[in-house]
């Protein structure tokens, strides 16, 4: 069985179906990218994998490291080593240094983080500061499987490259799922597999991430179904 194995997963939020019999397998140490237009269900997959209670699993299963985690509580998934870098993390009236102290014994020293430690998490943070705060938290957790949700949103290309390199250095050899609809982070991660998600399903998977991204860039997501790589016929 794969390190992460998602089988026929269907979820709903407030009674509305989002994921629809989704299947995805990721092997240990691999980096996968999940591409898809807005509202295709990418972030729903993140929150479902993390175990957020509003995202109700109606059907299917999630197995991680040979354990069925479909019904597991959020914090227990974290303890298994699953961590998310969120696109829109909430503002919290707790200093970042205090949060880091509580979630991990590991001290992370990164350039640019000093100025954030004495500030409340995401209160008045810029887009780049929010991302840095997220990445520092995740690195401090020393996770096994990391989901990066829209890492490239709100970052200029220089900072995106810096942050991507930081993640690759600090989390070298870890299993990564990169979620994006812009694809700007692709070249920094060079994934082993790329998947295209539409309407709550993965409609295409390939090792040739360059070809997939080229198709999307040239013709948009709607044309994905006509692509020669389209596998979900």
């Amino acid at each position: 069985m794969s390190y992460l194995s998602i089988k026929d997963l269907s979820t709903e939020i407030d009674g509305k179906g989002i994921l629809n019999k989704l299947n995805l397998n990721i092997e240990k140490g691999e980096t996968h990218v999940l591409l898809g237009p807005n509202a295709s269900g990418k972030s729903t997959l993140l929150y479902t994998l993390m175990g957020f209670p509003d995202y109700k699993v109606k059907e299917g299963s999630i197995t991680f490291d040979d354990k069925d985690i479909t019904e597991l509580e959020i914090e227990d998934r974290s303890k298994l080593g699953i961590a998310g870098v969120y696109q829109n993390p909430p503002a919290i009236n707790v200093k970042l240094s205090k949060l880091l102290e509580k979630i991990s014994d590991k001290k992370v020293e990164l350039q640019g983080i000093e100025g954030l430690l004495d500030r409340e998490v995401n209160v008045g943070f810029s887009g780049g500061e929010r991302k840095l705060s997220e990445v520092v938290q995740v690195i401090s957790l020393d996770p096994n499987f990391i989901i990066l949700d829209e890492l490239d949103a709100g970052l200029d290309v220089v900072n995106l490259e810096k942050l991507s390199n930081l993640i690759k250095e600090e989390l070298s050899g870890k299993t990564i799922l990169l979620i994006t609809h812009r694809g700007r982070a692709l070249k920094f991660f060079e994934p082993d597999y790329a998947h295209v998600m539409m309407d709550g399903q993965i409609i295409c998977s390939s090792k040739n991430w360059k070809k997939i991204w080229q198709t999307i860039e040239e013709d948009g997501y709607e044309k994905c179904k006509n692509c020669e790589l389209y596998t979900n016929r």
Partner: peptide, 27 residues
């Protein structure tokens, strides 16, 4: 305390009780 914040902290490995205590301490 918003569920969004509680769930976020739980996803960092804290229990609900630990999350609430952290928020109160921060407050």
């Amino acid at each position: 305390i918003s569920d969004e914040i509680l769930n976020y902290l739980r996803s960092r490995g804290l229990t609900e009780e630990e999350s609430i205590k952290l928020i109160i301490d921060g407050f």
